[in-house]
Amino acid sequence: MTAPAKILPSPTGKRARSKAANRRAILDAGRQVFARIGFEATTVRDIIRETELAAGTFYNYFKSKEEVFEAIAEDSAHRFRAHLSDVRATATDFEAYVYDAFRAYFGFIAAENEEAICNGAPHLALIGVRVDTPEMLAVAEEIRLDLEHVLSRDEGPKLDTAYLTAAAIGIAREMGDHMLTRRPIDVEGATQFAASMLLGGVREITAK
């Protein structure tokens, strides 16, 4: 009986995996360098030295350190959307959504920066999730729609969900950057403070 022929991976498939691995190596290197010496001090040469890639390979993917930083922000926001989806699926009401969303964000950035924190990197805020990228704008719109949905279940005064979303993201970003500078990092403490602040503001508005 003739043995079945081996199915070899196609050159196209291997090439795609190699390109993805190279891009990931550059993003990981960029995270480490930005965290260690800061965005302003970083050069493309610094990022390349952190990888095993040639300079020419780097420029096949990115033209500048700015593009690397933008890609890191987009990548982080894209992966955070999966956590937000879990929050959406399990939150039973507005208050639960607020607590769970803050906890998901603070936990996410703590995990993202774990290696840099262990290495004593002083520029952690530079590698958090930015708010001005297309991916993060999509996250903001998801949050706005989520808030609109959970609030529609409750009776009472209507809230401006655009303002509410902006407030939630602002609190998360500022507190998250500060949380990363504290030791030990207290995800639950940050969650409780941020959620209490936002919910307290909402109660104040709706009581008028």
Rank of each mutant, 00 (worst) to 15 (best):
Phe106Glu: 08
Glu114Pro: 00
Ala162Gln: 12
Phe62Leu: 09
Thr191Phe: 08
Val131Asn: 09
Phe34Ser: 05
Leu164Arg: 12
Val98Thr: 13
Val44Cys: 06
Gly38Phe: 04
Val187Trp: 07
Gly176Pro: 13
Ser64Leu: 08
Lys14Leu: 12
Thr181Val: 12
Ala89Ser: 06
Asp132Lys: 05
His78Trp: 12
Leu147Lys: 13
Pro9Arg: 14
Ala111Lys: 11
Phe108Gln: 13
Asn119Glu: 03
Ala190Gln: 09
Ala110His: 01
Asp28Ser: 01
Ala96Cys: 08
Leu84Pro: 03
Leu126Glu: 10
Thr90Asn: 03
Lys208Leu: 09
Ala89Phe: 01
Asp100Cys: 01
Arg144Leu: 00
Met179Pro: 07
His83Pro: 02
Ala207His: 11
Asp46Tyr: 02
Gly38Tyr: 11
Arg173Trp: 02
Ile47Arg: 12
Glu66Cys: 11
Ile26Arg: 04
Met175Pro: 01
Ala29Gly: 03
Ala25Tyr: 00
Lys6Glu: 02
Leu151Met: 15
Ser64Val: 10
Glu155Met: 00
Ala54Trp: 11
Thr181His: 11
Tyr97Met: 10
Arg36Lys: 13
Thr161Ile: 02
Asp75Leu: 00
Gly128Asn: 11
Ile205Leu: 15
Glu188Lys: 15
Ala5Phe: 11
Glu174Ser: 04
His123Pro: 10
Thr191Asn: 10
Val150Ile: 07
Ala82Leu: 15
Glu148Asp: 07
Lys65Ile: 09
Gly189His: 08
Ile169Ser: 04
Thr161Ser: 04
Arg130Phe: 04
Phe102Met: 09
Phe58Pro: 12
Ala35Asp: 14
Arg153Thr: 12
Ile47Phe: 11
Thr161His: 06
Leu27Met: 07
Arg45Cys: 00
Leu199Ala: 07
Glu155Ala: 02
Gly13Thr: 14
Ser85Pro: 01
Met179Ile: 01
Tyr163His: 14
Phe62Gly: 08
Arg153Cys: 10
Asp160Glu: 09
Glu40Asn: 10
Thr57Ser: 14
Cys118Leu: 14
Lys65Met: 09
Ala5Val: 15
